[in-house]
Design a protein around this nucleic acid. Structure first.
Length: 271
DNA sequence: CTTTACGCCTGACGGC
DNA sequence: TGCCGTCAGGCGTAAA
């Protein structure tokens, strides 16, 4: 489900509710996520205070005491802030209950998400060690994309969705960014000029920034910490709009499978 | 090294 | 009404 704007929306939403809060107990109703939830998670967290709520790529990183809780939401995960007495619903797998009676609750129907404990700073954790730059960092620029793509024949859409190249872009924002940059998503990554990769960088930052401002994109079930949807769906220019007229040229938007994922584009405006 | 295909899961939806 | 195939915002792994 969530790409960078949705994870960032959740990070900002939960931060004021969990920062400086001390963990009272942890309830694990389902430990079989992408990887097993550590069986000693509760003993690691109880009595410790949340001192930082960070994000790296699509991972949430909660510094609790002197270690880090690493959360990934996979395709269908969400986090809510609820009173601890709130009855758990279907797929409410984990509660982190604080001494103030509030609770951070993970719901994930498909269980592609993860909750792991990392004792040291997670930068060199295997899941994070090989990640590319954050899209809003200075390390993400046209020259870097150009250099990394030379000799590569995969579609540019798959290239920018590769988290080792740049983090945070998933299936929605890859289509949206390439539309804004005027580049056909199936074009070979290695056959794109430096100037056009500069455009890609601007388009990526623009679309991710706009989406964060709108609180993310809700297609079916994304919600923030209060259960409210994000409103960027109204601003999607191509994603999910097959057959509808392109806002720029009026020709119908097309949908094609590229790398096993639905990809939306305008064949006239994107070359 | 690169590229491709496949699981992992549940739920929603469309066609019959 | 039910059943069955397809698809869904991710990503690690195996295979070629």
């Amino acid at each position: 489900m969530p790409e960078l704007p949705e994870v960032e929306t959740i990070r900002r939403g939960i931060s004021p509710h969990v920062l400086e809060q001390t963990v009272a107990r942890v309830v694990v109703r389902q430990s079989r996520l992408r990887w097993p939830v550590p069986s000693d998670l509760e003993q690691r967290l109880v009595g410790k205070k949340v001192v930082e709520v960070g994000r790296r790529a699509k991972y949430l990183l909660l510094r609790i005491g002197d270690g880090w809780l690493l959360i990934h939401l996979g395709m269908s995960g969400s986090l809510r802030i609820v009173e601890e007495a709130t009855e758990a619903g279907r797929h409410d797998h984990i509660d982190i209950v604080f001494v103030n009676g509030r609770c951070l609750r993970l719901n994930d129907p498909r269980r592609f998400g993860a909750m792991l404990w990392v004792g040291r700073h997670p930068d060199r954790h295997p899941l994070l060690a090989r990640l590319g730059p954050e899209p809003f960092s200075d390390d993400f620029d046209g020259a870097m994309l150009y250099d990394k793509s030379r000799g590569r024949r995969l579609a540019v859409k798959n290239f920018i969705m590769d988290q080792r190249v740049v983090v945070g872009i998933g299936n929605i924002y890859a289509s949206e960014a390439l539309f804004r940059a005027g580049i056909h998503p199936a074009r070979a990554a290695g056959h794109i000029s430096l100037a056009r990769y500069v455009d890609v960088v601007h388009a990526v930052r623009e679309v991710l920034g706009d989406a964060i401002e709108a609180g993310g994109t809700t297609l079916r079930d994304f919600t923030d910490e209060n259960g409210r949807p994000g409103y960027f769906r109204q601003q999607l220019l191509v994603y999910g709009r097959e057959g509808q007229p392109c806002g720029s040229c009026g020709r119908p938007i097309r949908c094609k499978t590229i790398g096993q994922r639905s990809s939306y584009f305008c064949a006239h405006c994107q070359r």
